[in-house]
């Protein structure tokens, strides 16, 4: 039994700001932004919701591509954009509060880009 319908539309980076603007005008709230590393590309989801209707737009970019910030339209987006930058190294252009990589203070730069694991193995000592 499906709990809710979820639509995902893949768009180009150049259309991002226009689409987000439409959501903002339509009275949607920002649910979240998230980045995933799929192969050698980043997949970024922008999720919106209005009256329990969930919609998602997605951009697929290379590691170096700059993403425009949506914090001009959704002020609270800075937490997600800084998180994306600090964990994956996504270049986000024009954030309203740019922490310059210090929002999540990590000892390794961009830890989620090539995650390393400690002490793995079937037995503790290996």
């Amino acid at each position: 039994m499906k709990i809710e319908e979820q639509t995902t539309i893949v768009i180009g980076v150049e259309h991002l700001i226009g689409r987000v603007e439409q959501f903002r005008k339509g009275g949607y709230r920002l649910v979240q932004l998230n980045c995933s590393k799929i192969g050698e590309q980043f997949e970024i989801n922008y999720c919106f919701e209005r009256e329990y209707r969930f919609e998602n737009i997605r951009i697929v970019i290379d590691f170096e591509t700059e993403v425009p910030s949506i914090s001009g339209m959704y002020w609270g987006a800075f937490v997600y954009e800084n998180e994306m930058h600090d964990l994956y190294g996504v270049a986000v252009k024009g954030m309203n509060i740019d922490f310059q990589g210090n929002f999540i203070r990590t000892s390794v730069q961009y830890p989620f880009r090539n995650p390393s694991f400690q002490g793995e193995g079937p037995c503790q000592e290996k």
Binding site: E120, G121, P122, C123, Q124, E125
Partner: peptide, 8 residues
Amino acid sequence: PSEAICVE
């Protein structure tokens, strides 16, 4: 899940 057990 935490790899605490080792059986040899």
